[in-house]
Design a protein around this nucleic acid. Structure first.
Lengths: 110, 110
DNA sequence: TATATTTATCGTATATTTACGATATACAAT
DNA sequence: ATTGTATATCGTAAATATACGATAAATATA
């Protein structure tokens, strides 16, 4: 088998793992950075700056959308994307807390 | 095909993605937390506290070792693990910088 | 209306991940 | 020496992820 055992773990552990998975591919990291660095929503230029086929980029965008890390709108024939800063900050907080809380203990080992 | 295109992305993007992948499974998050919360290295009790088969836990431990997030030693018939805080802090810094640097821009959009 | 452009989705091939049982290995205890 | 215990590794099945070409859908333009 290989039916994932995720239900066996608690909510916090699953949330962190899920968030991590979203940014666990360099293409998604690159897309996120590219979208973030613009003043305005990026409309129809992401495919050009990425070394991947259009359909592959579209797939990665879909995952970022699913995670609500980006917001997509349509402008005529173009698709526009920008970062969903609310979710972005949730990610930041979740990772920050994980590291901070895990770190606290253990001064006399290793 | 499906030959991964990771070489096409830069070092920073790949590093963050790789780090994220290590903690992208709840079992590994749980293992890390379990090991971190002890005063001393945990010797031969990790399997018991996890809802997975011994061989599966061993596999996840191997991945954490490969990432150097934990250190493994042998004490007789037992295997002992503790967090490699140096790497842990490298992870923390990498995630922290990613969020901080990505966030800077973009005040008037979305 | 016909054509071009942009992007999402479908189908599919391949690679990787996850999980488990069985087995091997290494040490401890009898 | 034999037996028991802990853990890593092997083999393998199934699920998921990654990538691309082809195609569909939607809009803009001629």
């Amino acid at each position: 088998m290989a039916a994932t055992r995720k239900e066996e773990f608690n909510k916090k552990e699953n949330e962190l793992a899920d968030f991590a998975k979203v940014i666990s591919h360099p293409a998604r990291v690159a897309i996120l950075k590219e979208i973030a660095k613009r003043e305005e929503c990026i409309c129809g230029e992401i495919v050009e700056v990425l070394p991947l086929a259009q359909s592959t980029v579209s797939q990665h965008l879909k995952e970022l959308l699913k995670a609500e890390l980006i917001i997509g709108t349509v402008d005529g024939v173009k698709s526009c994307y920008c970062v969903n800063w609310k979710t972005f900050e949730k990610f930041e907080k979740t990772f920050g807390e994980f590291f901070a809380r895990t770190k606290i203990q253990n001064p006399n080992c290793c």
